[in-house]
Design a protein around this nucleic acid. Structure first.
Length: 679
DNA sequence: ATGACCAATTGA
DNA sequence: CAATTGGTCATG
């Protein structure tokens, strides 16, 4: 223990402390603090202590011993005595004097003089804690990775000068209205904010890299967030290509604690000025930040699963506002939240003209009606309408074909082959499922095997599987196209990239590999299944997944979606109109008083605990409470709070205050989630 | 959380 | 009357 010498020095003070213990707390002078000299300049350290209690979530002042005067810098990790225990904390700032009436306890030790908590990140954690009605300590845990002493010892060389070819950037963005203005604004030190809806087949990582280069040209740093490791890697490759080597670090969880802390320090020390990563990168300690970018903000991986559940997009927006940095929210799809940013003029729009979109992709809908299936003998048994079959056959003469199929490894319920009515068990009415390729269907509820099923509605004896999963799909496509290799990408076998070779790639949503020169065609199967989920965001989410897959075509390629052409999300896909769809969604959400037109929060916990919190809570005037009702299978109850957007921050503050009172009174815990992604 | 203090309650 | 329990308060 490096702190043992300080600890034993502290021991001498203890008898004195004991002698005063009988006196009233407020007036008792803390004996012993005078025995050690304090730092000459700014002898007070304002410390954020790491305690889990909401009502203690504020800075406390400590005396800085002279020996620590140099090391206890703002942002340094320290250890302090708090409520009779040694706890960790961060120095928020140094000050000449304290507001605190009593004598200050000295810092126990400076864990490391490394200023790992930048002032702007400290500020951001405060605002996020307020926004999400959580504790600052919880947000800090998301923002600053655990210390790794070995990583701290090694200093990284400052990055070499980046290669900056701003004209190349303007060429790359030439397809987009206001793209050049955005880059020029960045390179001249401005802070534009844009919602960028990428055209199909766009090489988006390269465009993001050019935006980063433009920002670097103004001498500022860049943060880029992408949903998963594959996307981070793609941006990383593009950054190296555009700006040269060693200009950026990747902040991803799975590189291990040492490498993670090393890369974090490269940023906090100012040696590297560009960070690209997943969720946690939103907190990257990039010096003199100029641009915050996020790709595909609708991806649910951006919803932090740990309290207080901040969303990466909201973190970036708050940070951009607070630091006066530019913001770039890009994607093939458009989330309702980013559409809302346009509507409120928080950001402006960067899109490709219609003509560009039209020349890059044509989308067709193929109905899955039985007559169309019947026309093509090759497609029999596969879920391929003849249009889709022909498209695949034609495209395969030219390059790889991507087939997106919803979900994998899932035992699907069966339906009547002719009328599509659900196939039910004759004994208990449970759903019939297939457990094997050659075995008869069984009831999922009572387990009885059914080998002579007939449809109770139309009398037809044939069954079909509405969802086959990617393995069955791959099998069937292999039979329909026997001369072509079929590969799969899903679950834990996700392919990053495929070549220009002629092959069929069957992938589940989000696992689609990119094709080096784009797919000759993309086919989206069973689109109605993705829409069958009952959820607030089902349509938005389905369209996002289809657009992301469809955007992988090569310029001029074709996309076929198998489904019901009257469906609004599919129509938006055919017209390639993510903007119009998002507008429509906003209108609906507003009517239903749902986010982003309103602010929601959920309270989940033991029924009594939820009631207690609701009693404490002083809601803003226009807020209302729905429930509480039983929720989940663990005996928990949940209440939903709703407030108009104008009272959103008031709702958050009220929840924060209630959480502090709850914590001070030692009432049972309640999980508070502000703007949960799924309801 | 943890500890301290104070008041009310319990038990011999 | 001491011992125990419960509520409140503060934590620098």
């Amino acid at each position: 223990m490096t702190g043992s010498s300080q600890a034993s020095a502290q021991q001498e003070a203890l008898p004195g402390l004991r002698a005063t213990v009988r006196r009233s707390r407020a007036t008792a002078p803390k004996a012993g603090t005078q025995s050690k000299p304090v730092a000459e300049t700014d002898p007070v350290a304002r410390v954020l202590v790491d305690v889990p209690l909401a009502h203690l979530d504020r800075p406390f002042d400590y005396a800085v011993p002279a020996t620590m005067g140099e090391d206890a810098v703002p942002g340094a990790r320290v250890r302090v005595r708090f409520a009779g225990q040694d706890v960790d904390g961060f120095v928020l700032e140094r000050a000449g004097a304290s507001d605190h009436a009593g004598r200050l306890t000295p810092l126990r030790r400076v864990v490391s003089p490394e200023p790992v908590l930048l002032p702007e990140i400290a500020g951001l954690t405060g605002r996020l804690a307020e926004r999400y009605a959580g504790s600052r300590a919880d947000v800090l845990r998301l923002a600053v990775p655990p210390r790794h002493a070995t990583a701290e010892k090694a200093a990284r060389e400052p990055a070499p000068e980046p290669t900056l070819d701003l004209e190349a950037g303007e060429r790359a963005w030439a397809d987009y209205r206001h793209g050049d203005a955005f880059l020029t604004h960045l390179s001249s030190g401005g802070s534009p904010r844009a919602v960028w809806t990428a055209a199909p087949a766009a090489d988006w990582p390269t465009l993001v890299a050019h935006a980063a280069a433009a920002t670097r040209a103004s001498g500022r740093g860049v943060v880029i967030c992408a949903p998963d490791l594959r996307d981070v890697d793609r941006v990383s490759v593009a950054l190296a290509a555009v700006l040269g080597p060693d200009q950026h670090v990747k902040l991803v969880a799975d590189v291990g604690p040492q490498a993670r802390y090393r890369d974090f320090l490269a940023l906090s020390r100012g040696a590297v000025r560009i960070a690209v990563g997943t969720r946690a990168a939103a907190f990257a300690p990039v010096h003199d930040l100029g641009l915050l970018a996020i790709w595909d903000d609708g991806d649910d991986l951006f919803a932090e699963p740990r309290a207080p559940y901040p969303h990466t997009r909201e973190t970036l927006l708050l940070r951009a506002e607070q630091q006066g940095a530019a913001a770039l929210l890009g994607g093939f799809a458009r989330s309702v939240e980013t559409a809302y940013l346009l509507r409120t003029n928080w950001a402006h729009e960067i899109t490709a003209p219609r003509a560009v979109v039209r020349e890059r992709v044509t989308v067709q809908i193929a109905g899955a009606a039985e007559e169309e299936l019947a026309r093509d003998p090759y497609a029999r048994g596969a879920r391929l309408p003849s249009t889709a079959f022909q498209t695949i056959r034609r495209a395969l003469t030219d390059g790889p074909v991507l087939v997106q199929t919803p979900r994998s490894g899932y035992a699907p319920s069966l339906a009547c082959e002719r009328c599509r009515g659900p196939a039910r068990c004759r004994h208990c009415s449970g759903p019939l499922v297939l457990t094997g390729v050659m075995t008869p269907p069984v009831c999922r509820w009572c387990g009885v095997a059914e080998d002579s099923w007939a449809c109770p509605i139309c009398g037809h004896r044939g069954l079909r599987a509405p969802v086959l999963g990617d393995s069955r799909t791959a099998e069937e496509l292999g039979r329909s196209f026997p001369q072509v290799p079929v590969r799969r990408s899903s679950g834990d076998h996700v392919l990053a990239e495929v070549s220009r070779q002629r092959e069929i790639v069957v992938a589940t949503p989000g696992a689609e590999p990119i094709a080096r020169e784009g797919y000759a065609a993309v086919v989206l199967l069973d689109t109605w299944l993705m829409l069958a989920r009952a959820d607030l965001r089902t349509e938005e989410e389905s369209l996002r997944r289809w657009l992301n897959a469809a955007a992988l075509v090569r310029p001029g390629g074709s996309v076929v979606a198998v489904g019901d052409a009257s469906q609004a999300a599919l129509q938006a896909l055919v017209r390639w109109d993510p903007a119009g769809f998002a507008e429509r969604e906003i209108a609906q959400r507003r009517e239903a008083r749902l986010p982003p037109a309103a602010r929601l929060a959920t309270l989940t916990g033991e029924p009594g605990a939820v009631d207690d919190l609701l009693t404490i809570l002083e809601l803003p005037s226009a807020a209302d409470v729905l429930g509480p009702v039983a929720f989940g299978d663990r005996g928990e109850w949940r209440a939903v709070l709703r407030a108009p957007r104008s009272q959103g921050i008031a709702l958050s503050r009220a929840l924060g205050e209630a959480a502090r009172v709850r914590s001070a009174r030692k009432l049972d815990p309640v999980r508070v989630q502000v703007d949960p992604v799924v309801l």
